[in-house]
Amino acid sequence: MEQFLQQLINGLSLGSIYALIALGYTMVYGIIKLINFAHCDVYMIGAYVGYACMTYFHLGLLPSMLIAMAACTLLGMAIEKIAYKPLRNATRIAVLITALGVSMFLEYGTMFFVKAEVRAYPSMTGWMAQSFQVGGVNISMLQVIIMAVTVILMILLQFIVKRTRVGRAMRAVSLDKDAAELMGINVNSTISFTFALGSALAGAAGVLVGVYYNSINPLMGMLPGIKAFVAAVFGGIGLIPGAMVGGYAIGMIETMVDGYGNSLYKDAVVFAILILILIVKPAGLLGKNTREKV
């Protein structure tokens, strides 16, 4: 039982990270039907910006995270403007391949500047380095921070999407781009804003992963990126609650497989789940099954 609870806590922290990244995938998919493969590299850049803030400018976790989020926001908007916007009316496959190209560019461009070596995040000091016991379960402050930050960001996101003008515009654009534009919504700036939001979340996830796992490298985005994508599909791609549920579910499953002995198979299990979902419920856990019109 104790082991199960321990894994539960570990799973929640990992799931938080996946959920944060998955939200970016899902929002962009929701609005322009693009799997933005470059998203996982925005997350990597976020981790590096946080690293720079902490190592060179000796900033605390929170300011570093905010700066990383701001930097990623700009990066996300720039990627959209430079790479995707000119292809707005191109075929989906063209944009998809562009996304792969942007991803490679960011990965190896970063590698050019910071070298391929693995870097160690500065370790936390003071209360953030502490951990405490609850009924035999060991919880570190960092895990608490990760979960809390994720929940706060999710609440903010829900608020923006549900209650604000630009959030409503996002939903309108995702449902019918042309009709939205004819109702006075600036579609381009709405899409740009969606990238900004998703990238900010990825930036936060990057810094959290940095402090949690302590090591970063230019290709760190690949595996978590794909798993977050699986999470988004698992929950129902295009649906914000789906990405949250999917993120936690994938994090939990991975930790459980890991914790109960088969750490070698944890990635295999995650991808097996993707295959299962695609066969059984292609629209995802929360998705409505719609028949493709032919």
Partner: peptide, 12 residues
Amino acid sequence: RIAMHQNVKYGL
């Protein structure tokens, strides 16, 4: 409400 949204003044 979305259609009326261009008349809304408040910011984020």
